[in-house]
Amino acid sequence: MFHWLEKNPFLFSVGVFLVIAFAGVITLIPSFAEASRPVIGTTPYSTLELAGRHVYIKNSCNACHSQLVRPFKSETDRYGDYSLSGEYAYDRPFLWGSKRTGPDLMRVGNYRTTEWHENHMMDPEALVPGSIMPGYKWMFTNLADIDTAYAEQITVTDFFGVPYNKAVPMKDGSTKTIFMGSTVEEARADALAEAKLVAADMKNQDVKDMVAKGQIPEIVAIIAYMNSLK
């Protein structure tokens, strides 16, 4: 009955491939689509946070720090809840990292503060004796690149429909709207307003002066980003 199949090996191979591929598609795609949807409470990055994320990438923080809490008791005890794939919905690219020379930073915003980061970035060993992390002093003088962050916001909104200026549901049932300026000037002003809030909690007078003058040093941006990691 099926000899005609055996006599057409190429057709047979294609048929087998199609059957298995179809089974793969219907088992993989729905669960993948479900898992990659943003988790309730995950919000897009604000302009300043995104600029901080660029500072994070520029300084290769991900070479030593991961952003992925694995589902092991030893990790959830230390860092908080294990990561869900939907929490990375607005990470482009994701910064899971593959090596933990330093601790995981997935939820660092929950247990570290602006002042702590400020002191720690200047001189890690002063706070954590024996730490091999270098100081990142230049972040206190280099300016954060707000324009590029804004460009990324526009890109991800256009290409991937990231919900800027739209209500995003939060865990407690409320909603939160992450603002994205309609012009670059608006984005700069928004980033500066956010930077002022961060700088208010900082102690370094030079940084405070810069922010008061309308400049945003990298340290402010990266602290805003760190605080957003929850």
Binding site: T76, D77, R78, Y79, G80, N110, Y111, R112, T113, T114, E115, D201
Partner: peptide
């Protein structure tokens, strides 16, 4: 002195 975060873990 500053801000201390909740230690939920």
């Amino acid at each position: 002195i500053g801000t201390m975060p909740k230690m939920e873990v």
